Amino acid sequence: MREIDVFIDTEEIAEFFYQELIKRGFIPTEENTRELADITFEYLLKKDIITEEWDE
């Protein structure tokens, strides 16, 4: 299996969730979508789909 660099932007994920929830008839708050983005990021980490790296 090869390794690739993927950059995850939680703000982009939050915006995606916001738009998708609106399409489905929900009225999410900004805080709701940020929480969903954080949960998604944590899920990807837990499943070893991504690893978190810090810029130095």
Rank of each mutant, 00 (worst) to 15 (best):
I8T: 06
Q19F: 09
G25H: 02
Y18D: 07
A14Y: 00
I39P: 00
Y43Q: 10
I22R: 08
T51F: 12
T29A: 05
I13V: 13
D55C: 03
Y18E: 15
L36I: 08
D38K: 10
L36Y: 10
V6C: 13
W54F: 15
Q19L: 12
I8L: 15
I27W: 05
E31M: 08
A37Y: 02
G25R: 02
N32Q: 04
R24H: 12
E15T: 07
V6N: 06
D48T: 06
T29C: 08
K46A: 10
I4G: 03
E56G: 06
E35C: 04
E11R: 11
I4Y: 09
D9C: 12
F41I: 04
D9T: 03
I13R: 03
E31C: 03
R34K: 14
T29E: 09
A14R: 00
E31W: 06
P28N: 04
F17P: 00
L44M: 14
D55Q: 11
W54A: 08
F41M: 10
E56N: 09
V6P: 01
T33I: 08
A14W: 00
F41S: 04
D48Y: 10
W54L: 12
F7T: 07
T40M: 09
L36K: 05
L45V: 13
F16V: 09
D48Q: 08
D9L: 04
R24Q: 12
T33Q: 06
R2W: 08
F16K: 09
E30R: 15
T10N: 11
Y18R: 14
M1R: 13
T29I: 07
L21T: 02
A14M: 02
P28W: 02
E12W: 12
F17E: 00
T10C: 12
E52D: 14
I4E: 12
G25A: 04
D9F: 05
L21M: 12
F17W: 07
F26L: 11
I13E: 02
E15K: 08
I4T: 11
K23W: 06
I22A: 03
T40W: 06
I49K: 07
D48P: 01
V6D: 04
R34N: 07
D48E: 14
L44R: 02
E53M: 08
W54G: 03
Y18K: 14
V6T: 11
A37E: 03
A14I: 01
E11L: 10
E42P: 00
A14L: 00
I22T: 09
R2L: 14
N32D: 14
I27S: 13
D48W: 06
N32W: 00
L44Y: 07
L44T: 01
L36S: 04
I8F: 10
L44C: 09
A37I: 03
V6S: 06
T29G: 12
Q19H: 11
K23I: 07
L36R: 05
I50S: 04
D55H: 07
E3F: 09
N32S: 02
T10H: 04
D55R: 11
L45H: 08
E30V: 13
E12R: 12
T33S: 06
I50Q: 04
N32I: 01
M1C: 14
A14H: 00
I49F: 11
F26G: 02
Q19G: 05
I22Q: 11
E3H: 10
G25W: 03
I8A: 05
F41N: 06
K47W: 06
E12Q: 14
D5N: 13
I22L: 15
L36F: 11
